[in-house]
Structure formats: structure tokens, C-alpha cells
């Protein structure tokens, strides 16, 4: 049995050094995926690097007109941040569909992202939001789009020694609105069979000027469906636009049959959820306009 060490560094530099010095070391923030994987024997990291004692890694900050969410910020804390919840309700609700209250009091969006599950609830919302992340590593810090992190189920683009420091959400303007919806068999406690995030901008005439639609659990990674957004842009959300949206979404789906859903069901749900999530985002965009 390999002995795992536990470290709780207090600076980003210390954390980078610990992670870089130990290729199988894993960062720990909420632990709701990591500890389960360790208990099941799926992974046996040489060290666990607890990020929660690093100053600035927990909590939500305003950065200009946008937001920076520390990597160790639990999902429930996002709900408690009134400005964030008002600006990015879709992101906040996505993060607060993960697991139970007990889980969300620990789980973080950064962990949800770096666990690299195609069904991660917060990721479609973050991708739709065009969020970025700040990554620290041996070569300093870099900022990349959220969509660039997951590479395949369980695999990220992070290099050895790198970890996610914060997630950044852009500023919101008039006519912006976002939303996230998922399909699960129960009302809570399930992994998304399909997830859909939408982020829209609507002008004063009710015309769509920008739209980003992202889907979860329909491909090896969360996918941004550019054609789905394009189907809406320029429209007033008429039937033709929704029909084009549905077609674009179905075309972007390459799901698998597994214990949580069939290919056919996932494709059908992706189209249903995309329409519903756009309608919710539209209501919010209209309310903001």
C-alpha cells in the first residue's frame, strides 16, 4: 500500500512546488470526487495538496466588472454572493445542482472542471459564459478558456505541477442572460444524463445578438455548439430559430449508451433542454434589458 502524504501549503508557490515535485500528487479543494476515487482505489496519489489554506483561493472577488472565483470556493458560497448570483444565475444554479447540500458545501467549480467528467454540471454553464481560468504552474501563471481544460473523460490539459487558481467570469451588460438545465432521473443526487447551458444577449428589439450554447454528457467533453448559437443570432427566437437550434444540437451530440442513458434519449433530451434553457436565459436577458 502506497502511503499518501497530506500537505496544506499556504502559498501558491509552495503548492506548485509540491505538485511539481510529485507527479502523482493531486490538489484537493472540495474532495468530493478525489476522496471517493482514493477510497475506491482508482487512484493512489503520492500526496494530496490541500489548497484551502492558500490565501485568496477561497471566495468570490469583483475584478473590474467581472468576477474571480477562487478555486477552493464551495458551490454554496456562490449562491451567497448576491452580485454573482444576479449577474450569472445560470452558472450559480449549475454549480448548485451538484450532489447534495452536504456535497455542495465542499465541492468547487474548479474541481468539477478538473475532474473532467463530460457530465460535470457547472462546466456547460461556464463554457457558455465564456469563462476563463487562471492556472498556476512551474512556469508562472497563464489564463485559458474553461473549454480548453477538459481533454477527455478524466483527463485535463494541465501540465505537471499546474493547478487551477481561479475561474473568471466576464462582466455582464444590458440584455445578457444565462441559464443551465439538466436531465436526471430523480429530482436530486444524480449525474446529468444531459446538461445544457445557454448564455444570450438580446437587444432592445428582442433580437438575439449573441448566443453561446454548451452541452454536457453528449460527447467525451463538454461541447460548445457554435451552430446552435448561430441558429439564434439575428433571430427573435421564433420557431424557425428553435428548429435550427434543435438540429444544430442534435448534430453536435455524439453520446454513448451507458447506465445513465441511451444515445437516442440523450440526443432527444439535448434538443429539448437546449430549447428550454434558451427560454429561461431569454427571460433573464429580457428582465435585464
Amino acid at each position: 500500500m502506497t502511503a499518501t502524504a497530506y500537505h496544506a501549503p499556504e502559498t501558491i508557490e509552495q503548492a506548485v512546488a509540491l505538485l511539481a515535485g510529485n507527479p502523482s500528487a493531486r490538489p484537493l479543494s472540495g474532495g468530493t470526487d478525489l476522496i471517493v476515487q482514493m477510497r475506491s482505489g482508482r487512484i493512489a496519489p503520492a500526496a494530496v495538496i490541500d489548497l484551502k489554506r492558500i490565501a485568496g483561493l477561497s471566495g468570490v472577488r469583483r475584478v473590474g466588472d467581472g468576477f474571480a472565483i477562487g478555486a477552493a470556493t464551495p458551490c454554496t458560497a456562490l449562491k451567497d454572493h448576491a452580485e454573482l448570483a444576479a449577474a450569472w444565475p445560470g452558472v450559480v444554479e449549475a454549480a448548485n445542482l451538484i450532489g447534495s447540500v452536504q456535497v455542495r458545501n465542499r465541492a468547487t467549480m474548479a474541481g468539477n472542471l478538473c475532474n473532467a467528467s463530460p457530465a460535470a454540471d457547472s462546466v456547460p454553464a461556464l463554457v457558455a459564459a465564456n469563462a476563463t481560468c487562471l492556472i498556476a504552474g512551474p512556469d508562472g501563471q497563464r489564463e485559458v478558456p474553461v473549454a480548453a481544460i477538459p481533454q477527455a473523460p478524466g483527463r485535463t490539459s494541465l501540465a505537471p505541477g499546474e493547478f487551477l487558481v481561479e475561474i473568471r467570469l466576464p462582466a455582464r451588460g444590458v440584455g445578457d442572460g444565462d441559464a443551465y438545465l439538466r436531465s436526471i432521473p430523480r429530482t436530486e443526487m444524480d449525474i446529468a444524463v444531459v446538461g445544457a447551458g445557454a448564455n444570450l444577449t438580446v437587444d432592445a428589439e428582442g433580437r438575439c445578438t449573441a448566443a453561446r450554447i454548451a452541452l454536457g454528457a453528449v460527447a467525451p467533453t463538454v461541447v460548445l455548439v457554435a451552430d446552435a448559437g448561430a441558429a439564434l443570432v439575428g433571430s427573435r427566437f421564433d420557431d424557425a430559430a428553435f428548429a435550427a437550434l434543435a438540429e444544430a444540437v442534435k448534430a453536435a451530440c455524439h453520446p454513448i449508451d451507458d447506465k445513465r442513458g441511451t444515445i437516442a434519449y440523450r440526443k432527444a433530451m439535448a434538443a429539448v433542454l437546449a430549447r428550454r434553457v434558451v427560454l429561461t436565459a431569454l427571460k433573464r436577458a429580457g428582465a435585464a434589458a
Binding site: 432521473p185 436530486e188 443526487m189 445513465r260
Partner: peptide
């Protein structure tokens, strides 16, 4: 009636040996 079921894969192994995917009703259901 609604969600509980044993799911075996083609190799004869149980695919849902936990409360996450053996879906018993929760309070909100």
C-alpha cells in the same frame, strides 16, 4: 416502479453498485 434496477454489463459485472446509480427515492422525489 420508477428508477430502481440492477444494471449488469456484458461482462456480467454490476454497473451500479452504489446509491448514486441505484436510484432510490430521495426526499424531494
Amino acid at each position: 416502479a420508477l428508477n430502481e434496477t440492477y444494471i449488469y454489463n456484458a461482462q456480467g459485472k454490476l454497473d451500479n453498485p452504489g446509491f448514486l446509480d441505484y436510484r432510490m427515492p430521495v426526499a424531494s422525489d
